[in-house]
Write a protein that binds this DNA or RNA. Sequence first.
DNA 1: AAAGTATGTGTGAGCCTCATACAAACTAAA
DNA 2: TTTAGTTTGTATGAGGCTCACACATACTTT
Lengths: 416, 416
Amino acid sequence: MTSFSDDNRRAGGGWTDDVSRNNRPRHGLISSSSVGSANRGRILQALFDLGPTSRADLARYTGVNRATISGIIQPMVDQKVLVEGDAIPANESGGKPARPLWFSEDAQPICAVLLMHDSVRSCLVSLNGEISAESEAAFPAGTSDVRVLMDVIADCVGKTLASAARPAIGIGVAAVGMIDTDKRAIVAVNLAPLLDGFPLGVELESRFGLPTSIDHHPRALLVGDRWFGLGRGRRNFAVVYTGDVLGGALFLDGHLFRGPGGAGGELGHTFVQLGGRRCKCGRIGCWETIATLGWLREEAGNIELPGAETMTAAQLGALAAQDVAAAGQLLDRYAHNIAVGIANLQQTMAPNFIILHGDVVGGGERLVTAIAKHLHELVPWRPGGEIELALGDHEDVAALRGAAGLVLSDLLHFPL
Amino acid sequence: MTSFSDDNRRAGGGWTDDVSRNNRPRHGLISSSSVGSANRGRILQALFDLGPTSRADLARYTGVNRATISGIIQPMVDQKVLVEGDAIPANESGGKPARPLWFSEDAQPICAVLLMHDSVRSCLVSLNGEISAESEAAFPAGTSDVRVLMDVIADCVGKTLASAARPAIGIGVAAVGMIDTDKRAIVAVNLAPLLDGFPLGVELESRFGLPTSIDHHPRALLVGDRWFGLGRGRRNFAVVYTGDVLGGALFLDGHLFRGPGGAGGELGHTFVQLGGRRCKCGRIGCWETIATLGWLREEAGNIELPGAETMTAAQLGALAAQDVAAAGQLLDRYAHNIAVGIANLQQTMAPNFIILHGDVVGGGERLVTAIAKHLHELVPWRPGGEIELALGDHEDVAALRGAAGLVLSDLLHFPL
DNA sequence: AAAGTATGTGTGAGCCTCATACAAACTAAA
DNA sequence: TTTAGTTTGTATGAGGCTCACACATACTTT
């Protein structure tokens, strides 16, 4: 029943496979010394969530003594990671003005990498979420050697890193396909089988000597939204990505949910329509069959809309805005199909806040409103269970910030 | 964006509504003093998960120094919470024999309460999961005063507590309906609207002077399985309860998942069949419409099975065992319908291990096997993603142990 | 009988947070 | 202008916890 088996020790040892990436056993206790780094991480996360904040406010927010905050913050100020901003005058009740703390302009940036099946992009992301030193490269066609691809990636990353004024904190990779976050390897990429099983994270780490984090695209989007976007400061929310495929990720009770083997959040292949269409995965009635571009284009063709075979939510929205009745109806059906899966997600996990990414973003407020309307009809009301929808950032920015967020999460996410 | 609003403090204070039940702010840091009680809790949970275990093994399992374990354990032995068992002789490699630790027979029991819409049951649960001092009472019909019901409940609990050799650690309540675990109140009970909004937890706590925990039935089942049943020691699993209604609960990454407002795990009303049957909740195609006794009995009637209107999985299984072909087919369809929802759950959260409770248990191994077969067809294969199904304990035992588990969870579940 | 191995218990060091006191900076009222 | 009140941020000693190390104990093997 327990997850370890006998070895040379007496009553069952061999917990070696039961440790997380930081080489400490799960079930581990809290060591006095680890309290320090954990609290450092928590304070930095609080600061991130709140924006520029004084020591006193941080102390209140985190529920600790002001002196403790000072003790933790001061070394970071000395190391020029944080800087004190201009004093904020006291309000009418008087008192010494507060000095807000924020990340220094000179703080080290993060190197973000977006790995697609046929190309790679990289850039620097500042702790304010600003993007610079972008670089991009396409994979050569017809290669049969992974090392060629790896060289292309390393070249791209190298260019970006060379532009950094200060050495980067680490490298974060958002990748298409299936990712093993623990081994930091690619499990499988449908359109680029050459990369299957390639330990990209380890490879980058050894080439550049920087801590490297890697996760798949939807989860990176979520992490980006948590650190730099609309999910900032939240304890629960979800990300849904639609496009050619449908993916999702979950932030639950203040933690990124990965699930065993990183299998959590595979929303595209949940059933919503037994006896429905056949999915690319071979099964029938997956959500992905009714809420992705494939469905939209097929339906647009059926009603003979112009440009059906390259239809997007943006174009459909434009047609609908021109009072093409059929377009408006299709947009509403698309919205309904998307809402169905979100409703299931809400019933299961109650994230209460869902950030939409991908094609949907092109549909703008009209599409979101339509989805929200259907969603409110589909989800039974619960006390305190108001549901909000929002649109994410522009696609590439979100993904790159997400890759950067992976580094922050690994760095600060309480090593308990 | 952040969850607190301005008050008299300077840059936004008012985190008072943003604290969990133990009156510490979320986002809180770890205080040196809380490390002690947190580690105490973790060690006890490890001991629970492992069964009788020596100090040295606990030290290895939790990854800390043996001296630390001794320091934590010794006071508990002195207080007679734990006892040393007989020495386990060393194996061939020699060494001093280990003295396994376990909870003392004299350790305080937990008072478990199962609240149904028309009656209440209570009992004592030992730390070994043994049940004793059972008591039961029905609510009088036609009452319009909640206090009458409360008196019946208090009477029942009082009888159980009076039979305890040592004072109970606390009271755990598993209740039907919707529960607010933070306020420890009943939100709504369909069949007993008199109880709506009643702060049962607070009331019991003040009447008996014991810490009281309360949660709804499926989550209690899960907690019971985590402490005393098949979920023991696991970091991820789910519970699915089927009967007249369909409910579920989730244990994710080592934590019970409640979701905002306790709304997580409402699996019965996820959509699996757009355009399907109308559900009691008013919507169409809920999982509950095809995987509960209502569906089973209707279908059994359609094919004119004997005893259709009171059909259960147990009876259907018996008929199928007698080679009634139609019964075997219906059983398989029932299994398929149950598997569909589990497949969605697996896709979303990847618990990888699902414990079935309720009517399904009566269907025995044949039904589980059928469900498992469909499940493996419905869930795409993933590396390391083997899925297991299991049957829970007999219904009442599971619920009462679950109620007891709630107390343990609240007591030991790291106050971080 | 000696060497090897494993368990469990002292002891001092190191780290961390906490309570308390205090200086600094500002408001508001006398 | 003076005085009291309020808030920020720092210094200091106390207390709690884990850790590494040493040591006594108990058992196996050679």
